[in-house]
Each structure stands twice: as structure tokens, then as C-alpha cells.
Nucleic acid binder design. Structure first.
Length: 764
DNA sequence: CGGCCCCGCGTTTTT
DNA sequence: CGCGGGGCCG
């Protein structure tokens, strides 16, 4: 136990040693926040507090998993009994146990965002409202916001302000959509992500005895990333901690980046009011990064008006200054970063896994994937199109979901005609219409259908042919045969049987295309993950059934898949995903107006500050060196646009930016002829490892040749092959050529980047 | 009913 | 550009 405390700074030690009472830990980036949290939990256990009475809440499964591993190292295996996980996973577990109390069954389904959107689309159709006005995403986020502020449909309907807002935005029917959506979920015995928090609140609010049970159970509560809690989460914690008041929250207002999900920085401020006898610990020393990075980050965040007072400092090396890299195109940005990755690995003798490329949006990843692949640089990409979002995976899971919870209408819609069994859209419409009229689930509706229309005269007739009725009956029997086995077969056998018996496997195998083969591989990977899940839980008990696997899988993301540390790969991820992580070398890419800060964020000071905090998070991931890049032109939705450097670059104190790169990338405001670029890049001397100003030489050399190509010229492009120029367009300083390529089709290219080779010039 | 093609639209960010 | 949804035709 002495060992634990010896590893800590005085402040950290004090924070760890406070066992009882409320404590607020304000922890700057890299200040050893996770270490304090893990050690505090270990310390509790070493002081004979039973692990099962400790509740530790995190925001990602990854954070929970890592923390648990670290605690096991210090305090041993009993740490497995800790209640540690995300808000969503912990409270979904509790809701399983208490489901009946709130009118659900314990086998409830958890709908992911895709499911929710699809239901909302269905409602919009049902209500016959304009889906251009009522866009599913907008409606969903409105509902999500309501739930996160604990507003039920009734509360929403009677709220004048919300009604006003919806009228203003010409969407007065959102309240009605919410009502229907809410009921549909209930009828399907399903909860969406927000419901997990909403219903936990309802459960605790309306059932004092149940609340009391958990208040006595969880004697010690710890919350990580407290600045990212929303109203629903805040209230759950507040209720649970009310009696014991042994609550520890850790947070950093400067790293609050989830307000789009309803997070409220104020929660961390309210802590002082809620628990007046709290003790506050400020962790201000950054043990991760160089002084340059910490100071640069401080200078950046100082531009935000709203923030808690805190002085972060580093006593590490001064370190290298930040490089700012300008690229002409997004493509070139990819190439430059890729070659800098190589230079870093060989020049600094570090591993690929010490390097991360961080971007604002997932869509940016592709270019870096390409450029890294081209150079044979191993990389690992997080987020983006999730494995669990793939159609074949969702289909397989939908069968399992339907077997576990037949009321799950979304699952039913997904699989009733997959593989195609002749129950098409028009039949489905009839089934759905009947279900709606009679307030039944689809499964219940299907259960009422006769085998033929000539059956007993009081039997249901929805107006489909006998041949279809027969197919529906066959489907029903198929699902019934699955339902029987839900609680008798272990998750793995169940899943592999369902994939064969449903006909999915045969359908997939019939497709010999590369995509078809990859789909089968994905299914195999899914089965493997189920096997892995069984193996994991067998060590701590019996073999789990499919229902248990399903409730876990819906709260799991790609992020959580084995991040086997042994693999030496460059990490690509969004900044949001990078929160809480650290890397020696960080590349922050795409620092352009409209991208970062995003175009949606530049209207309000509030969201601009959040973007700035996001940039702060990105910068402070770097231990040794940060490099920032932007591109002057970028493909967006298939066509080229030009962009200017992000305003945030000017927020960093110049003294922390390498002089050569600042000058070349930012101060020079050259827009005119490219010949100027060329000359300047020649002047940039070699004192710096990278020459940010230096564009791809080849494209420069080609410019003069091709800048004034007439229409009709036959040209050759490295990627698109040969084609003919059909139009020239001068836009600002760019000359764009519309080229009809013989094989690649029509493209619009900016001449100075296109590297065209002239094949034949009609005017010569 | 099912498959194919075309059109329209989208980018925040995650549980 | 890439995806998903809707529409049309076989």
C-alpha cells in the first residue's frame, strides 16, 4: 500500500487518501487523473471497502476496461467485483433487474441510433408529414435532447418554450412524433440509448424503496469526466450519492467537448453547491507533455471566456516547437503527413504506435489511410463505419434480437424478408397497418394471421394472398424454433445455428464477389467475438445465453475491440475518440475554417468555444511533439473547394510555433501565381527537417506548361488516364479544367495540381 | 415481388 | 464521392 502512495505527488496523494465525503478533483490534461482515480479505488479496497459497493462511472467502455486492468494490478483480482463501466452499461444492467417496475420486461432490446432513425422515418411516413421538413436526424436529436433533460412526451407537449421553438422551425409536430416514438419503443419492449438514462431516473424518482436499495449498495461513487455529464446522468449520480455522500468526481472544464450530447459544464460548478462540505483538489502539473505543448495549449484555451481558474504547467523538457504544415491539396496533406510519419519513426527511433493522426471528422480518415497504405505504413483506424453497423452484422443480430424479444419490431422488419422469402413491401405495409390500427407489435400481428383466408370467418384478414400467408406462417415457425432455444443453447451455438437455419449463410455463400466473401468473413468475426465473450464470462461464472451477449453488444463500439498494444501501428482517430489517450507524436490535420472549427460551429460563441476546447484536447494528447496541418483545397462531396487556415492557429502564442513553419504557412498570404510559391519554397532553407512551404515539385514544374491549355487539347492524367479538355474556367486564382476522360469520365481538375501531360494540342 | 438504377443528399463529434 | 431510399421495369 505504501507503494501506491509513493508513486504520487502530494496533491495526488491527498486526493487518493480521502476515503469519505465528497471530493472534487479538477484535473488538467495529463495531470495523472486516471492514475488518481485508479489508485483511489485501489486504496478504498486496500482499506477493506468491499469492491461490490464501489460504483465507478466512465464515458467509454475503453476507459472502464483500462481502469479495471490497472486496479487489478494494484489491488488484485477482487477488482473484478467493482461496479465499473459506462453510465449506459451500468444502468442497463440495473434496469434489467428492475424492468418490471417501469413496465418493461428484462429481455428488453437496446435500440442503436440506426434503429431509432428508422423508427422515426416510419412515424414520419405514418403521420404523412413532409420528410424534407421533418428530417429524421433533426427529429431524433430533438427527442434525444428532450430525454437527456428528462422530458417525457407529456412534459414536452406541455412545454411552451419547446412548442415555440418547434413552431419557429416549422416543425410543430415533433411533439407528436416524440409521443409515438416513445410508445413504439415501449410496445417493442425496447429502449434507445437515452432511454437507459431516462428510465433509470424515472425508476429512482418513483420508487423510493428501490432507490434506497442502490443507495445502500453503492457506498462509494466515483465519476470520471464529470464535465461531460448531462442532466440525466447528473441526477442519477446525485440521487445515488444522496445518503452516503461519498462521491468523488474528476473533471476538467477545459476538456468539455460533448455538449452536443447534452453535457453541461455547469454540473461541475454545481458540485460545490450540492455538496457544500466538499474538498477540492487541483491537479495542475502536467506529467505528460513538454513545456512547449502545455504552454501552447494554455495560450490557446486562454482565448475562451468561460473557464475555471487553473494554472497548468509542465516541468518536463522544453521540447520542440509546434510545426504548422501547409498543403495545397488534401491529397498532398496525406502524403506530407505520411512521409513525416516515416521520418519520425526513423529519425527519432520511435514506434509507429507512438504516433497518432487526429482529425475532426471521420470522413477525413480515408485520405490518410490511402497515403499510409501507399507507403506501407501500418495503421489502425478507430471509429467510422462501425463493424456492428454493417448490414450483414445487423441482420444476424436482428435474428437474435427477435428470438430474445419477439416484440422488437425493428428486428422483425429487418429479417422478415431477408433472405428474400416472398414477403415484400406491400405485404409488409398491410401487416404494419394492421399492427398500427390494433396497437399490436408485428410479431403479435403475424401470430393472429390465419393459414389461409378461407379459415374461420372471424379470423383476421389483412388482404394478402394465401400464398403469402403460407410464407408468413413458415417465417413464424422459423422464429418460434429459435425462441425455444434462446435459454437452452449457449450464445455461440445459438448464434451459429441461427445464421445457418435462417438461410442467411446460404444467401451469403451464393455471392462469390469480393464483397460477398468479406461479408461471410464479417459473420465469422461476429461468431468469434461471441466465442470470445463466452470465454471471458466463463472465467467469472457460467456460460452466458444469447440475451446476455446482446445487451452487451449494443453498448459496445469498435473502439472497444481488442486494442492489442503489441501491434505497432499508427493510430488514426477523431479527436473525440482520442480524449483520455496520449501519444508521443501527434499530427492534428485538417485545421481549416469550416472543418475545424466546423461550419456549424462558427455562428455561436458557445459552440466556437467548444471547438476550441476540442483543439485543446487534441494538442494535449501529445507528449513530445505536435504537428498541425491544413490544406488549401479539399474535396468535399466529390468536388473541390478552397479553404483558409483555421482561426485557432492564431490562438496559439507564436513563440511556441516553429518560426519557419509559422512564416511559411501563416504569415505569407500569397494567393497569386504559383510561380511565387515556387520561388519562395526554394528560399526556405534546410534548417528544418520539413519544408512546409515546399509543394510537390512536379506539380509546380508542370504549371507553366499547362496553365493555358486550350479547350480540345488531349491530355493524360496519372490516375484518370487520357482525356480531352472540354472547358476551362478561371475562378479566383485557380484555373479549372473540365476534362472528359475516356475511361474515368468527366472530372473537373485544378490545373496547377493536376499534373497533366499534354498529348496533342490542336492549336499547334 | 424483386432487382436494378438513378437521384438526392450529407459531415460533426459518441453511448 | 458514397450511401440509402425510392421508383420503375421485368
Amino acid at each position: 500500500m505504501k507503494d501506491i502512495l509513493a508513486d504520487l505527488s502530494p496533491v495526488q496523494r491527498d486526493a487518493v487518501r480521502q476515503i469519505d465525503g465528497p471530493s472534487l478533483i479538477i484535473a488538467g490534461a495529463g495531470s495523472g487523473k486516471t492514475r488518481v482515480l485508479t489508485y483511489k479505488i485501489a486504496y478504498l479496497m486496500l482499506n477493506d471497502i468491499p469492491p461490490r459497493s464501489v460504483l465507478a462511472l466512465t464515458f467509454t467502455n475503453k476507459a472502464a476496461k483500462e481502469m479495471k486492468e490497472r486496479i487489478i494490478k494494484v489491488a488484485g483480482k477482487q477488482a473484478n467485483k467493482l461496479w465499473m463501466g459506462t453510465f449506459h452499461s451500468i444502468f442497463s444492467r440495473i434496469l434489467r433487474t428492475e424492468a418490471e417496475t417501469i413496465g418493461f420486461k428484462s429481455n428488453y432490446t437496446i435500440y442503436d441510433t440506426t434503429d431509432s432513425l428508422s423508427i422515426i422515418r416510419g412515424i414520419i411516413k405514418e403521420m404523412n408529414v413532409n420528410d424534407k421538413v421533418y428530417r429524421d436526424r433533426d427529429v431524433y436529436s430533438r427527442i434525444s435532447m428532450a430525454k437527456n433533460s428528462l422530458m417525457t412526451p407529456a412534459a414536452y407537449a406541455s412545454n411552451a418554450q419547446l412548442a415555440n421553438e418547434d413552431i419557429q422551425s416549422h416543425r410543430p409536430k415533433i411533439s407528436g412524433i416524440y409521443q409515438r416514438y416513445f410508445m413504439k419503443c415501449r410496445n417493442a419492449n425496447a429502449m434507445d440509448f437515452d432511454d437507459l438514462l431516462l428510465y433509470t431516473n424515472i425508476l429512482f424518482r418513483d420508487n423510493p424503496d428501490i432507490l434506497k436499495k442502490y443507495q445502500q449498495w453503492f457506498k462509494y461513487i466515483l465519476v470520471d469526466e464529470y464535465q461531460d455529464t448531462n442532466v440525466a446522468q447528473y441526477l442519477i449520480v446525485k440521487r445515488l450519492a444522496e445518503v452516503s455522500r461519498n462521491i468523488t468526481v474528476v473533471g476538467d472544464d477545459a476538456q468539455s467537448i460533448y455538449s452536443f450530447r447534452g453535457a453541461r459544464i455547469e454540473n461541475i460548478l454545481n458540485f460545490r453547491k450540492d455538496y457544500p462540505n466538499y474538498t477540492e483538489y487541483k491537479l495542475e502539473q502536467n506529467y505528460r507533455s513538454t513545456q512547449t505543448i502545455v504552454n501552447a495549449a494554455n495560450s490557446l484555451i486562454a482565448k475562451n471566456k468561460k473557464q475555471l481558474k487553473k494554472t497548468c504547467f509542465s516541468e518536463g523538457d522544453v521540447g520542440e516547437k509546434i510545426d504548422i504544415i501547409r498543403a495545397f491539396t488534401d491529397q498532398e496533406e496525406g502524403q506530407l503527413i505520411a512521409s513525416m510519419v516515416v521520418d519520425t519513426v526513423y529519425g527519432k527511433q520511435v514506434n509507429y504506435s507512438d504516433i497518432a493522426i487526429l482529425y475532426r471528422t471521420n470522413a477525413q480518415s480515408r485520405i490518410f489511410e490511402d497515403s499510409l497504405r501507399r507507403r506501407n505504413i501500418p495503421y489502425r483506424i478507430y471509429g467510422g463505419i462501425s463493424f456492428y453497423q454493417r448490414a450483414e452484422i445487423k441482420d444476424a443480430l436482428a435474428y437474435m434480437r427477435l428470438a430474445v424479444n419477439p416484440l422488437d419490431d425493428e428486428a422483425m422488419i429487418r429479417v422478415i424478408n431477408y433472405p428474400a422469402r416472398g414477403i415484400g413491401n406491400s405485404s409488409m405495409d398491410k401487416i404494419q397497418a394492421y399492427a398500427l390500427d390494433n396497437n399490436l407489435s408485428l410479431w403479435e400481428t403475424v401470430g393472429k394471421l390465419p393459414l389461409t383466408n378461407t379459415g374461420p370467418k372471424d379470423s383476421v384478414n389483412i388482404g394478402v394472398k394465401d400464398s403469402i400467408l403460407k410464407k408468413i406462417a413458415e417465417f413464424r415457425e422459423l422464429v418460434e424454433s429459435f425462441i425455444i432455444k434462446v435459454n437452452t443453447e449457449d450464445a455461440y451455438s445459438f448464434a451459429s445455428n441461427i445464421i445457418r437455419q435462417s438461410g442467411m449463410m446460404a444467401e451469403l455463400k451464393a455471392n462469390r464477389t469480393p464483397e460477398g466473401i468479406s461479408r461471410i468473413e464479417n459473420i465469422e468475426e461476429l461468431l468469434n467475438s461471441i466465442k470470445g465473450y463466452i470465454k471471458n464470462s466463463e472465467s467469472s461464472g457460467d456460460s452466458p445465453m444469447i440475451a446476455e451477449y446482446l445487451q452487451n453488444v449494443s453498448l459496445i463500439t469498435d473502439m472497444d475491440k481488442d486494442s492489442s498494444k503489441d501491434s505497432n501501428k499508427v493510430t488514426l482517430m477523431t479527436i473525440h475518440s482520442a480524449k483520455g489517450l496520449e501519444f508521443s507524436y501527434i499530427f492534428i490535420v485538417g485545421m481549416e475554417e469550416g472543418l475545424f472549427p466546423g461550419s456549424n460551429s462558427i455562428q455561436s460563441e458557445h459552440s466556437l468555444e467548444e471547438e476550441r476546447r476540442l483543439f485543446y484536447v487534441a494538442l494535449t494528447r501529445a507528449a513530445v511533439k505536435a504537428t498541425i496541418s491544413f490544406a488549401q483545397t479539399r474535396y468535399r462531396w466529390g468536388n473541390l473547394g478552397s479553404s483558409t487556415p483555421s482561426r485557432f492557429l492564431r490562438d496559439i502564442d507564436k513563440s511556441y510555433i516553429s518560426a519557419s513553419s509559422a512564416k511559411s504557412a501563416l504569415e505569407t498570404r500569397e494567393k497569386p501565381q504559383l510561380s511565387n510559391f515556387y520561388k519562395k519554397s526554394e528560399k526556405t532553407d534546410g534548417d528544418h527537417q520539413y519544408k512546409p512551404l515546399k509543394p510537390a515539385m512536379k506539380s509546380q514544374e508542370k504549371v507553366d506548361e499547362t496553365a493555358f491549355i486550350p479547350v480540345g487539347t488531349e491530355v493524360e492524367h496519372a490516375r484518370f488516364g487520357r482525356g480531352r479538355i472540354v472547358g476551362i474556367d478561371v475562378e479566383g486564382n485557380d484555373v479549372r479544367a473540365k476534362i472528359e476522360f475516356y475511361t474515368a469520365g468527366m472530372k473537373t481538375l485544378i490545373l496547377k495540381f493536376a499534373q497533366l501531360e499534354i498529348i496533342e494540342n490542336p492549336e499547334k
